[in-house]
């Protein structure tokens, strides 16, 4: 065969390169008719040939903590609604733990935070809030509790971790030493965002919106003329509300996110 270049093959080769180099392949490189089946087949072959079929121990430990939190009642969605009569949590200084029963019996709310000696983290001062539908800066709520979602040690600068609490699904990010919590739900159609460390953004798999680590649309048209987004050929066609940002604090090296309760 002559030396030929096929744009489809070039594009698809990027998908395969990501796959075989252990990265996260981009769906954008799988666009043509029938290519999805090719991508799936390639994924199966890559997996079958890989000796790396076991999970990363750090990942296993991080997810384990979420399971433990569920056992503790932090993420117990079976918990019936309002919780009142706050009571200090015994042993609050060590790892914050509650049984599901305790969670049922005692309001955790503000009392737990006070009892444990809260040091709030300083959040970035945001510029004057723009009107949004999805969220307007920090999410502050009345009733709720602080849920431990990760250890600060696990969140080096430029990294992000996914977390789930009964009320909220999001990321905690470390942006130049500042810890922030951001919703993982795209404010367009509700697809789940992924963190891309190389880009330091939260990217939507559905239509390619990118949010910066302050939760603002980063590849929108409004900013495109002065600051086109790296790697995107075109601006995201519509403006989107900011991501919701719940309150976050770091306490004894533990990252806690405020979880509202109805």
């Amino acid at each position: 065969m002559a030396d030929e270049r096929d744009p489809r093959a070039e594009r698809f080769a990027r998908y395969l390169d990501a796959l075989t180099e252990g990265g996260r392949p981009s769906p954008g490189d799988v666009a043509g008719d029938g290519e999805a089946e090719m991508a799936q087949l390639a994924a199966e072959m890559a997996a079958a040939a890989s000796q790396a079929g076991d999970p990363d121990p750090a990942f296993v430990e991080q997810l384990r903590r979420r399971m433990r939190a569920a056992d503790d009642g932090v993420a117990a969605v079976q918990v019936p609604p309002p919780i009142r009569d706050a009571r200090a949590v015994p042993g609050g200084r060590a790892r914050w733990r509650l049984t599901r029963r305790q969670l049922l019996q005692s309001g955790i709310g503000a009392a737990a935070g006070v009892a444990a000696g809260v040091i709030g983290v300083t959040l970035a001062q945001r510029p004057a809030a723009r009107p949004t539908l999805g969220g307007d800066g920090e999410l502050v709520a009345g009733e709720g509790f602080w849920a431990e979602v990760a250890l600060l040690d696990e969140l080096p600068d430029g990294s992000a971790l996914r977390f789930t609490t009964p009320a909220f699904d999001g990321f905690v990010v470390n942006d130049g030493g500042e810890v922030r919590a951001l919703s993982s739900v795209c404010t367009h159609m509700g697809c789940t965002l992924s963190y891309r460390p190389d880009w330091r953004d939260l990217r939507c798999p559905c239509h390619g919106a990118s949010f910066d680590l302050e939760g603002r649309l980063a590849n929108g048209r409004r900013t495109w003329r002065d600051n086109p987004y790296r790697g995107d050929a075109r601006a995201y066609p519509i403006e989107l509300p900011d991501l919701v940002r719940p309150r976050v604090k770091v306490e004894d090296g533990r990252i806690m996110v405020w979880t509202a309760q109805a």
């Binding site: 990501a18 796959l19 252990g22 990265g23 996260r24 392949p25 390639a42 994924a43 199966e44 072959m45 890559a46 997996a47 079958a48 890989s50 790396a52 079929g53 076991d54 999970p55 990363d56 296993v60 997810l63 384990r64 399971m67 433990r68 569920a70 056992d71 503790d72 992924s194």
Partner: peptide, 26 residues
């Protein structure tokens, strides 16, 4: 607790199951 027990028993198996079908770690 019960969730952690279920997790400990199955995390490796589920991960392998999924990995075999998507072929990449993330």
């Amino acid at each position: 607790g019960p969730f952690e027990q279920v997790y400990t028993t199955h995390v490796v198996g589920i991960y392998r199951f999924v990995y075999a079908r998507v072929g990449n770690r993330p």
